[in-house]
Design a binder for these strands. Structure first.
Lengths: 185, 185, 185, 185
DNA sequence: CATGAATGAGCGTTCATTCAT
DNA sequence: AATGAATGAACGCTCATTCAT
C-alpha cells in the first residue's frame, strides 16, 4: 500500500486485504503490523480495543470501496441491468486478479470473527446499506421502489452465493452469470 | 454427542459443529477434544495429519448430512419445486435452532482453512456433488437434463447467499424465500 | 536392513544407526519402529524398559561391529602401525559414506542419553574393552604390555577427537591422519 | 546465574550450561526459561527463530569463554608447553567441578542439534577459531607457523578425545595427561 | 504521538509408554 | 509371541495484549 497513507490508514487497508484472504482468525496482528510497516505498539494507539476494533474499521473501509465500485459501474449505465452487468464484470475481474480467492470482504472479515453482537450488527448494517444503494440505482433508472428493493436483495444474495461457488471452482464464471440469473436468461 | 459413537466419530461430529460455528481457525483442537471427551493424543492416532485431516473428515461428514436432508425433503415431494421448498424449510428450521448462526458447513469449514489446494479441491467436489444430487432430483421429477443442471446450480448459489444474509439478519426468512427467487414469484 | 533379521535385531540395528546420526533424544521410538517395519507395541515386548533398554542393546551391537572392523584391519597386518593405519582408513571410508556425519556410535548413543549411571558405566566398559582389544593387537605384534596399553589409549583418544573434527569439517582427513599423530610423523 | 545479567544474557548462559549437560534435544525450552526466571514468550522476542537461534548464541558465548580460559592460561606462561599444561589443568578442574560430566560445550551444543547446515558450519568456524588461537599462542612463544598449526590441531583433537574418555571414566586424568601425549612423554 | 520490550495463556503437535487382546 | 489403539504430559512455538518510556 502507498507510503503516503497514514499509519492508521495503512493498518486498515492491509487488515482488510489480509482478513479477506484468510479470515479474522487466520491473520495475526503481527502480520498486519509488518505489512503496514507499523511498529508493534502502534496498533493499540490507533485502535484501543485491538484486533476487533481494527476489523470493524477494515469492514467499514471495504464497504466504502464496494460502494465506489457500484458507483463506477453505474456511471455510464444505459439502464439498471446494464449497470449491474458492468458491476458483476468489475467484481469478476477483481476476483480473477486475486488468484480466484478474494470474495466478499464483509463476510470474510465479520463472519469469521468471534460471535460478537457488534460484529453481527455491523455486518447487517453494511449488507443493508449496500442493498439500499443498489435499490437506489434501480429507482434512478425508473424502477418502482418495491421492485427495486426486491431486485437489489436478490442481486446481493446471488452475488454472495456466486462468490462462494467461484472460489470453490477457481473461476469467475459464476459472478459473470449473475445478471442472467437475476434478470432471466 | 451420543456416547455410543466411537471416539473417531465423536471427534468428527463435534469438529463439524464447532467449525461450522466459528471456522477452522476459530476453534482449537483442545476444545474439540474436550467436547468429544477424548484425550489429547487420540486426535493424532485417528487423524495422523492432525487438525487439517479432521477438518477434511468433518467436511465429508457434513456433506453426507446435507445429502440426507435433501433425500428426506424429496421423500414425499409432489414435484421438484415442492421438494426444494421442503428442503429450504428444513434448512431454515435448522438455522433457527442454531441461534441463527450455523450456515453452510462446507463453506464454514473449508474456506477458513489455510489456503491449501486440498481444501479448495474438496470444497469444489462437495459443492459439485450436491449440485449434481439436486439436478438428479430434478430429472426424477421430469426435468430435462440441461434445465435441471441450471436450476440446481442456481439453487445452490441462492442458498449460499441466503445463508449469508440470514446470518447477518438473524432471520431464516431469506432461506425460506429461496423458492420464490428461483422459480419466480 | 535385511528382512531376514528378527524383529529384535532389526530394531537394534536401526536404532544404532539412527542414534548414531541424531543422538538418543534426537530419534523417536516411532521412527525406529517404522524403519524396522515393526508394530507399535513390539518394542516393549523385546525391550521391557523401552527406549533406554534398546539404546543399551544398540550400543553393545555397535561395539561388536567396531571390534569386527578392528579384527578385519589386523587380518593381514605386517605390524601394529600397519594394522592401525588400515583401521583408520576403514573408519574414514565409513565416515565418507555416511555424508561425513556418523562418528563414534558409542559416544553418539550413550553420551546423549539421560545422565544415567547405567549409561555411563556401559560407555566406560565398551571404551575400555575396545582399548584393551587394540592393546592386545599390539602385544600380538611384539609390543610390551605397558607400551601397548599406552598406545591403545592414545589411539582411542585421538580417534574420538579426530571424529569430532572430521564431522565439523565434513572431511575424513583428520581420521586418516591419526597414525601420523600417534606414531610420529 | 547472576540476576544482574539481562534476560537475554541469562537465557544464553543457562542454555549453554544445560545444553552442555544434556544436549540440544535433551533440554526443553521450558527448563531454560525456568532456570533463567524468564517468561515463556520472552525467548521468542530475543531469539525470533527460537531454540535453534538460542543454541547458536549459546555456542558463540561458550566459544568466547573457552578463548578466555586460553588467554588466562597463557598469561604467565614460560613457554608454549607450559601454557598448554596450565590450560589442561584449568579444563580438568572445571570438569571435576561439574560432576565429571561437562565436556566440550561446542560439541555438546551443536553436534546434537538437528542436522542443519548452519549448525555444522558454526561448529567448524568455532573449532577453527580455537585452533587458530592456540597456534597464535605457539607463534608468540617462538614456534614456526607450520609447526604451531600442526601442534594446535593435535592439541584440539586430543582435548576432544580426552574429554570423551574423561566423561566415560568419571576422571579428569585423561585431560591432565594431554601435554604428555602431545609433547612426548 | 509513538514505540518496542515484555508477557503468559494457549496453539497444534510429538512423545515414550500402557494395555486389552 | 505379538499387536495397534489409546494416553496425557511435554514439546517448541504463536498469540493478542500491556506497559514503561
Amino acid at each position: 500500500m502507498s507510503e503516503t497513507l497514514s499509519t492508521r490508514d495503512r493498518l486498515i487497508a492491509n487488515a482488510a486485504r489480509l482478513f479477506q484472504e484468510r479470515g479474522y482468525h487466520g491473520v495475526g496482528v503481527a502480520e498486519i503490523l509488518a505489512a503496514s510497516s507499523a511498529p508493534k505498539g502502534s496498533l493499540y494507539y490507533h485502535f484501543p480495543n485491538g484486533k476487533a476494533d481494527l476489523a470493524l474499521a477494515a469492514a467499514d473501509w471495504a464497504s466504502v470501496q464496494l460502494l465506489h465500485i457500484l458507483d463506477d459501474a453505474f456511471a455510464d449505465a444505459r439502464d439498471f441491468q446494464d449497470g449491474i452487468t458492468t458491476l458483476c464484470f468489475k467484481l469478476a475481474k477483481l476476483f480473477d486478479l486475486s488468484d480466484h480467492w478474494r470474495t466478499c470482504p464483509i463476510s470474510s472479515i465479520l463472519f469469521e470473527a468471534p460471535e460478537n453482537v457488534m460484529f453481527r450488527d455491523k455486518t447487517r448494517t453494511i449488507f443493508d446499506d449496500w442493498i439500499a444503494a443498489v435499490a437506489a440505482k434501480g429507482r434512478e433508472h425508473g424502477l418502482e421502489k418495491s421492485h427495486a428493493d426486491q431486485l437489489a436483495e436478490a442481486i446481493w444474495i446471488t452475488l454472495q452465493g456466486a462468490w462462494n461457488l467461484a472460489r470453490a471452482r477457481k473461476s469467475a464464471d459464476p459472478i459473470r452469470k449473475i445478471p442472467g440469473l437475476v434478470f432471466g436468461a
